[in-house]
Structures are given as structure tokens and as C-alpha cells.
Design a protein around this nucleic acid. Structure first.
Lengths: 252, 252
DNA sequence: CGTGCTTTTGAAAATCATCAAGTATAGTGG
DNA sequence: CCACTATACTTGATGATTTTCAAAAGCACG
């Protein structure tokens, strides 16, 4: 097993290598805004590191020293209440930019769901880079705007949708988020689409504002109704996409 | 009464006057990022107009032609489900920048709660302006990041807080959002702070993911418990700020 | 093949929603 | 200026979805 560095959530030794030019995550990240010839400027301020599954690499309330970019794996982002209640505000996978904090501290925590690889930038140095490449700033604004739209959609879900509608929305969104790459082999016509669920039922519950039991029961009922199949706990297969979609949009 | 223009949500004739230099809302808006000497460039692409109370000036799903900046009054921003269920995603008051859509259509609607004055910019022309003044883009990114943080906080509220906690959070946040200006006369020590509620109980319910009845009952109970006073329906007075605050943060 | 975790399933309880009046409040027109 | 109407708000009784509590069943891992 990889040795764990003391006083740090970082698992693998931090290494600047793997230049941005060679980064496979670049195409689906903000870094893609830069002209390839400028990528070495980015490499200069970035450091890449690995995070093992289950490890918290952003602590809510901690000093916001870095920006992050996910280059492999998936993380859950969450906020906590003092008594332990948790709301997952999103899942960050390849290409996701993290750390757009307003204050000097992170307003959310982040924990790896799978082994991850993450790129990080010192905020101060990033600022210089943004000054140098306004196109990067433009890209960040686009990303932030997109996240804002997603956040509003999630508010609609949390505030006004039923448990069934929430689960349907979640499954449909997960299915849609697959295949960011066109050569993905998961391009079945409409149904029979396999949707991996790297998170636990508890995570899904905390994302949808429900309990574990309600998530489990609702999925079981979807299966009984023939809308999905559940080959194993961490994967579902969509059997009736249209039915799920109309449920998700609130059409009874 | 002001004549209503046909085929438009605009009430008062659109007029370019009131140059940005003289705009009182500027200090608390993104426009403040520009150097005063550059403000005429902004004035050139902005048009100001009035909106009467209750009027929808952004239609969810409509072509996103403009950016908006609120210079007076308050609006509610919302998303709808096909059967009429509504989630208010926020309230926009003086200084709020609106319309950071990703797609070509607005992802939310906006309706005036009070008579408003709004400044609007053609998106295309705004883009030119952003190219010309990167500092404006920087400011927009800051605003978007701040809204994102607020949205995540609201997800925590909608997903994990009880009705009492939601109302307490709402009142505390409203109280805190008063007095953006230091010379505000509403600076009572801690308690006895008058908090205006320009929105209806229905709006509060749709913002907090509750029903009108639950909002009303909860406020009544707060009053019975001596935490607030309700001189009239559109105003509350905070009597026990600390109690409200610990409720809001989830401390039982 | 245990052991510990996650998931599922069941029964009871609770919070909040729905249904239904009744009471203020504001705006309108006489 | 005042009654009248419409709307918003409050309050009560009932009901339902979801949570909580509890336990069994699966599954992964050593």
C-alpha cells in the first residue's frame, strides 16, 4: 500500500511531472481553454497527486489554499450540520474544477469515492495565471455559471420533488452524464443503459435529501415496476427511460 | 397609472439616460469593478427600465437575450414543474446581477415583488465589454462564486433542515442581508431588529420547500416562544437573535 | 467460513402536507 | 369615508409521505 504522508490527506508523493500537454483529463476540463503552447505555464504552477478511496482531501472550513482539478476518479462534495446531518451538494468526476471559494476558507468538504488523481494550484499563483490568460477566466466563468444552473435545478429537486421523482431525476442525470466522450461504448439506443453508481445508498440519500431506507425502497419499487434492473448494488440498468424521464420532470 | 407596452413585460418606456456614473446601485453591483472613467462605455450598452410589482420580466425557457442588473426593488427567481409546483431559488435586490445562463435560454423565471428598476445589457455587447475590461469578468466570477456558495448553503437547508430550522435560517439571513450600507439606521444592538418581508408567505414557502400553512404556523410558534414579534404580515422583529441563530445552524 | 459492512425489508412514529374554515388586510368603487 | 370584495394569512382537523427504529439478508474481505 502507498505510504501515507504525515499531516496531510495526500497519499501519493506529490509530483509535478505528467505535464498538462499529456493530461488525458484536459479535454474535459478548464485547462482546455489554454492554447497548447501555453500549457507549460500551467504545468509550472500545478502539482498532481493521488487520493485513496474514502479520504477527505478538502475539509469544510479549512484555509482555502488551493484550487483543484480532478483528473481521475470521483469525489463527493458535502456540507455538514453540527449534529452530523450531511448534504451532498454534488459529485466531482474527471474534469471538474473545485475550490471556487469566496471566503478564505472552503465552504464544503470533499471525499474520494474511488481512488483519485487530482491536480492542484496555489490560489495566489492561479490568480497570476488568470491575469495572464483571460481566456482561462472566461472559461471559469462558464463553468461557474453551469454549476449555478445545476445548483438551481437541485434546489427544485430538494424543495419540491417527491422521493420517486428525486430518484428518477438522479438516475436520468447519471445516465446522461455518462459518455462525455463520443467513443463511449455505453451508447445503447435508449434503454438497457448501464449506469454505474460509485456512491453508497447513504451518499445518494444525502444527495437527494432522503434516508437510506427511502432510497433503497424506491429503487426496489422501480425494479418491481420494471423501470430499472439492479444487477448489483453499485449498478443499475435503465429499462424504461421514458417513464423515468417523465417521472423526473414531474409529469405524474 | 403607467401605460403598459404591448407584447412586452416592460412597463415604463425604455430609456438609456441615467448614466452609470450617477447610478446609486453601482456601489453594490458588478459595475463598480469598472474605473469611473470607463463607465460611459457601460452606459453605452445599457438600457434602464421600470417593472411594476407582480410582473414577470424573465420567462423560464425564453431566449436569453439580456443580462440584467437590479437597480431598485426586489424580484423573486424561480423554477417551475409542469404541474405548477414552484421553487424560488433566490431573491434579487439592488445590485444583483442576473442572467448568467449557460444555454441560450433562461433557466429560471423572475418576477418583481415590488416596483423595480432594472438595467439590461444585450448579451453579445456585454461579451465585447468583458473582452475589453477583464476586471469586469473577474468581478462576475466573484459574484458567480458567491452565488454558488449560497446555493450550496440552500441545498443544505432544503435537503437536511427541519421546518423550524429553515424559517430560522431565513429570518437570520434576511436580517443579515439588511444594511449593506454602513449608515443604515437598522443597526440595533442584536435584537429588536426589524426585518421587512416584501414577499408573501407563499413565496417564503416556495423558497424554503414548505407549504404556506407550515410557514405561518412556524412563525406563529416563534412568536409564542418569544423569539420574534410580528407587527404585521410583511415585517417581523427579531427578539432572540441567538436562539434563532442556533436553531438556524442546526444546534437543537 | 466468520466478521463487519452495506443493503433490504418491515412496523411504528412523526413531521409536514392537505383539506377546510375563519380572520385580517388592502384595494375598489360607491 | 366607508362598505365591499378579493386576497393573504391564520388556525384547526385529518391524512400521507417519509423517517425512525429494528432486524434480517447480502456481500466483501481476511
Amino acid at each position: 500500500m502507498t505510504p501515507i504522508r504525515a499531516r496531510s490527506t495526500v497519499v501519493e508523493a506529490i509530483r509535478p511531472p505528467e505535464p498538462c500537454v499529456a493530461c488525458e483529463a484536459r479535454v474535459c476540463s478548464v485547462c482546455n481553454a489554454l492554447h497548447p503552447s501555453d500549457l507549460d505555464r500551467l504545468s509550472a504552477v500545478a502539482t498532481s497527486f493521488g487520493v485513496e478511496s474514502g479520504r477527505t482531501f478538502i475539509e469544510e472550513g479549512a484555509l482555502a489554499e488551493f484550487f483543484f482539478n480532478v483528473t481521475a476518479g470521483t469525489a463527493k462534495l458535502f456540507k455538514l450540520l453540527p449534529d452530523g446531518r450531511r448534504q451532498i451538494t454534488g459529485f466531482a468526476s474527471v474534469g471538474t474544477f473545485l475550490g471556487l471559494a469566496v471566503s478564505t476558507t472552503y465552504s464544503f468538504g470533499a471525499e474520494a469515492l474511488e481512488p483519485m488523481r487530482i491536480c492542484r494550484f496555489q490560489r495566489a499563483r492561479m490568480r497570476d495565471l488568470l491575469d495572464e490568460f483571460p481566456v482561462l477566466e472566461r472559461k471559469l466563468l462558464e463553468v461557474a455559471a453551469a454549476e449555478l444552473v445545476a445548483a438551481q435545478e437541485q434546489m427544485l429537486l430538494l424543495g419540491r420533488k417527491t422521493a420517486r421523482e428525486r430518484l428518477a431525476s438522479f438516475l436520468v442525470a447519471r445516465a446522461a452524464s455518462l459518455c462525455p466522450l463520443p467513443d463511449c461504448n455505453n451508447r445503447r439506443p435508449r434503454n438497457q443503459q448501464r449506469v454505474p453508481l460509485p456512491m453508497t445508498r447513504g451518499d445518494i440519500a444525502d444527495y437527494l435529501g432522503l434516508t437510506i431506507e427511502t432510497v433503497s425502497r424506491t429503487l426496489t419499487r422501480f425494479r418491481a415496476e420494471g423501470m430499472i434492473d439492479i444487477p448489483n448494488a453499485s449498478e443499475i440498468v435503465i429499462q424504461a427511460r421514458e417513464a423515468l424521464e417523465s417521472l423526473a420532470t414531474g409529469l405524474r
